[in-house]
């Protein structure tokens, strides 16, 4: 904006926005603080909590009590596995729809999107029974498959919108210069598609890391990722504030940081291009 802004107005804006920002962020900040307190100090009044001494003991205790690392690795496996499996299936489809559009391409895209509107609880019973009969309840591969299918429409859509932004003229020019299809894909298309693919991967890791319907209903002790593991803290461990905080911080930190870098992609991925 080319308007001159006076400093006092800018200070006021900053003060109001910073206060609201702090309020929104406060719960995360608060568990970060609690996670470094002893169990006894963590339940005291806020002022006493702030002035109490700091300790790392909760982080060690969480690992010892419940094999935290196993559940963390489950989360990593499930979210990375479902994202990359989805990418493998989605890239050819999105590529074909973006560069060889047919009359029905739009209908196919819309139909794919419509599968995303299906409420998971509507198919809870059959999926549960299929999983039980196949013996893949409480396995990581089962969850990888379900989360991949859940997110496949988003992956295809995001890739499609990114691929569409690659100008066709560049591909034509490469072809005129005698590039084979393999060279075209490898040296022209891929470098231009990488930023879009990276954004897609980022958003989908976030979505599957935080997915809390299938992970809660299809896992027990073995394959439980962090969403389900934390849910087991609802009682009675919920009363151990420091340990709950430490477990929570470790569960949300990686995704929180990734989320900060993916604000733009989030808008694009979750509105299916309806808001730019």
């Amino acid at each position: 904006m080319a308007r001159a802004v006076n400093t006092s107005r800018k200070s006021l804006n900053t003060a109001i926005a910073a206060t609201l920002g702090l309020i929104m962020f406060f719960p995360v900040l608060w568990i970060l603080i609690l996670s470094f307190k002893s169990e006894i100090d963590a339940v005291r009044s806020p002022w006493q909590v702030l002035t109490a001494g700091w300790t790392m003991e909760s982080y060690g205790a969480v690992q010892e009590r419940s094999d935290y690392f196993k559940h963390f690795m489950n989360s990593v496996t499930i979210s990375l596995g479902s994202t990359f499996l989805g990418l493998l299936i989605a890239i050819p489809a999105a590529w074909a729809m973006a560069f060889v559009p047919a009359k029905r391409t739009k209908d196919v895209l819309m139909w794919m999107l419509s599968t995303k509107m299906l409420p998971p609880v509507g198919v809870l019973v059959p999926i549960y029974l299929i999983f039980r009969n196949l013996g893949i309840l409480d396995t990581r591969s089962g969850l990888v498959i379900v989360l991949m299918l859940m997110n496949l429409p988003i992956i295809i859509w995001m890739l499609y919108t990114y691929f569409r932004e690659i100008p066709g003229e560049i591909l034509e020019a490469a072809r005129m210069d005698g590039a084979s299809l393999r060279e075209e894909v490898l040296y022209v298309l891929t470098p231009m598609a990488i930023p879009g693919m990276a954004s897609t991967v980022l958003l989908n890791i976030i979505l599957s890391w935080n997915e809390a319907f299938w992970t809660l209903n299809l896992t027990a002790a073995q394959a439980a990722p962090l969403t389900a593991f934390i849910a087991s803290y609802s009682s009675p461990e919920g009363l151990f504030y420091a340990k709950l905080s430490a477990a929570s911080i470790m569960a949300i930190a990686p995704i929180l940081i990734m989320g900060w870098f993916s604000q733009k992609q989030l808008v694009r991925g979750l509105t299916f291009g309806a808001v730019k």
Partner: peptide
């Protein structure tokens, strides 16, 4: 930031 906090964590916290 709250958007990236997993549902079970925000519920319990």
């Amino acid at each position: 930031s709250p958007f990236f906090v997993m549902p079970t964590v925000s519920g319990l916290v």
